[in-house]
Amino acid sequence: MGLGKVVILCTMAALVAGQEKSARSAMTTALLRDLRNANDIYVRPGADIGGPTVWVNMHLFGLEKLKERTNVLQAGMSVDLRWNDPRLSWSPEEFGNLTTIFFPIKDMWIPDITIWQSADPLTPFFSKEQDICQIFSTGDVVWAPKARMTVYSNMTVGANGEVHHRARAYLGSWMLGVPQIDIHPSSPTIGSTMLQWSPLTGINTSVERVIQVFNEIPGISGYPLLEVTIEAIERGNETTGELIQ
């Protein structure tokens, strides 16, 4: 094959690849437009029949106590949230066989999950840094923001001088109760594979679904919450400070 034919074939291949990329970009743009039009950020998914089920999975990447309040633990973590929103589903064959897309969370409904009884109630639980979620053609949504949990701990000193911390917090929607929303843990423990250079050593964690009932609130039969427990031991006399995300 001569050099001229090689150049022509390469040029044609580049043109075809460019056209396919352009067509896929156009399909993505069209899909984003359709999803925005179909979605209402102020209406929860399945509101006519109750509400969504949100699955929560947590991974610790930092754990320490505050210098100014030794009975307060601060945990930095990644939180994987998963739920289904039927309004965000589509037929892949209508959009160039796209089965997943990234979508800005400002344009969609997200669960108002926070830490109940936080030791720092004015600080948001979720970071604003992770402003993109992933949506699948089935309507399944995955959002994985970073978060900071600041909670009170019960401190005890062992016979060998080790300081043991046990903190408990409740994670859930601040406004929505049963049956408006349901929340379940994806795992009975918090992942700790990323917790390597923390001033505190995590020794035990647990995550359990509970229902909190307030009899004085009419129309709400209870709030589904995740009871989160973290146990940790201080490493010697190392200086600890505030965890920075």
Rank of each mutant, 00 (worst) to 15 (best):
A169Q: 05
P124T: 05
T156Y: 08
K146C: 04
D140S: 03
S127E: 13
Q196P: 14
Q196E: 11
T138R: 11
S192G: 12
I132H: 02
P179L: 11
Q196R: 15
S187A: 15
T123S: 15
R166T: 04
P179Q: 06
S187V: 01
A167N: 07
R168Y: 05
G172A: 10
T138N: 11
C133G: 15
P121Q: 06
E129D: 08
M175Y: 10
Q180R: 01
G161L: 04
D140M: 03
R166Y: 08
G172L: 13
T189H: 06
S127M: 07
Q180F: 02
S186D: 13
L176N: 00
H165F: 09
S127T: 11
P124H: 14
P188M: 13
A147E: 00
F136S: 11
A159N: 13
Q134W: 04
T150Q: 06
P145K: 01
S186C: 08
A167Y: 06
W174F: 14
W143F: 04
D140Y: 04
K146A: 08
I132G: 06
V142W: 04
E162V: 04
R148Y: 04
V151T: 10
R148G: 01
S186P: 06
T150A: 12
R148S: 10
G172C: 07
V178W: 13
H164Y: 11
Y170R: 14
Q134H: 03
P121T: 05
V151I: 14
T123H: 10
S153C: 15
T138F: 09
V142P: 02
Y170L: 13
G191Q: 11
A159L: 14
S137H: 08
G191K: 09
Q180N: 08
D120C: 02
E162W: 14
I181M: 02
D182F: 10
L176E: 00
G161S: 10
I181L: 07
P179E: 11
A169Y: 00
V178A: 12
M155I: 05
T123K: 09
A144R: 07
Q196I: 03
Y152N: 07
S192N: 14
M194Q: 13
I132P: 02
P199I: 02
P199K: 15
P179R: 08
K128S: 14
D120K: 09
